[in-house]
Amino acid sequence: MRSIARPDAHRTYRGRFVAFTDALLLGVLVLLGSLPVVTWFVAVAAGARLARLRETEDATVGWRTYWKAWRDAAASGFVGSFLVPVLVLGVLAADLFAVRAGLDAPATAAAAISAIVLATVALRTAAEWRVGIAWSEAVRAAVSRASTDLSGTALLATAVVGVALIVTWVPPVAIAAGGPLCVAAAAVRARAESRASADIP
């Protein structure tokens, strides 16, 4: 008996493949935007913004659109864009060195948990950022959503752990690792926003 394929099967597959390649391309762009090191958070914020725009406005993921988002994020203020993120990166680096130094189990667990928490908060903050708002406002919104949307926070933390493990096992994957994390951050925020609007009578 001849099987009948779903009319939208090809379109669904193509859409998922395009989304996958866009996530990988976004990861490469985030890596390039992070090369000066002090711009890592600007690069992530730009990636999360472009991931949102891709879903809400069908924006093209490319160098021009990413560079515009990067410049907007960098222009949002020196302290929030560069200074504080560098301090956070320093804490994450200290955690990594401490773990590699061979700490005992409780200390290693504490270092790993603090790194996961910081990375998750950073991603939620990047996802909350919009052109025209202060970073302090984005941080407050991120902390608020992290506490009220515990399931979303858990999903994002799981994504952080998953990507970290994959990069540990297959280091070359780090080239595109930022893309899936930016997409995850944008998706978690959209999920929380959708659930919040659904609760409004």
Rank of each mutant, 00 (worst) to 15 (best):
P7E: 00
L31Y: 07
V18S: 04
S114A: 14
S3Y: 09
W63V: 15
A185H: 03
A186F: 09
D95T: 13
T12K: 01
V42F: 06
V38H: 03
A198M: 09
I166Q: 06
V170N: 09
L165N: 07
G80T: 05
R191V: 00
L24E: 03
K68D: 14
R54M: 04
E57N: 09
T56A: 10
D22G: 04
P7V: 00
T12W: 01
T108G: 15
A119D: 05
R145V: 00
V163I: 15
L118V: 04
V84K: 06
V61E: 06
A94F: 12
T158P: 01
A101S: 15
T153K: 11
L155P: 00
V79T: 11
L155K: 12
Y66S: 02
L26T: 02
T168S: 15
A127R: 01
L181W: 00
F82G: 05
G162V: 04
F20W: 13
F41Q: 09
V161W: 09
L181C: 08
A192D: 01
G179V: 03
S34C: 07
R189Q: 06
A107D: 05
L31R: 10
R189I: 00
A134H: 11
V131P: 02
F82K: 04
A176Q: 03
S197E: 07
A134D: 14
A109I: 13
S34I: 03
S147R: 15
A48D: 04
I4K: 00
G47R: 04
A177E: 10
K68W: 10
L165G: 15
V121R: 02
R189L: 02
V61C: 07
V131A: 11
V38D: 01
S81T: 13
W40H: 15
V161P: 03
D72F: 08
A93Q: 11
I116K: 00
G152M: 03
V188I: 11
S34R: 08
T148E: 14
V163G: 09
W67C: 08
W67H: 15
Y13D: 12
T168R: 15
T153A: 14
A164F: 08
A177S: 14
L156C: 08
A119W: 11
A127K: 03
G77S: 07
E57L: 08
Y13A: 15
A23W: 01
W40F: 14
A134M: 08
M1A: 02
R195G: 00
R6P: 00
A138C: 11
A109R: 13
T65S: 14
T12S: 07
A186Q: 10
F97Y: 12
A69E: 15
P201N: 09
R54N: 06
V28A: 14
E57F: 04
G62A: 08
L89W: 13
S147W: 13
I175E: 02
E128A: 15
G62V: 05
T60K: 11
L25E: 08
L87M: 13
V38R: 04
V44Y: 05
A23Q: 03
V170Y: 13
L89Q: 11
V18W: 04
P7M: 00
L165M: 12
P106Q: 01
D22M: 07
R124T: 05
V30F: 03
D199G: 10
L53S: 09
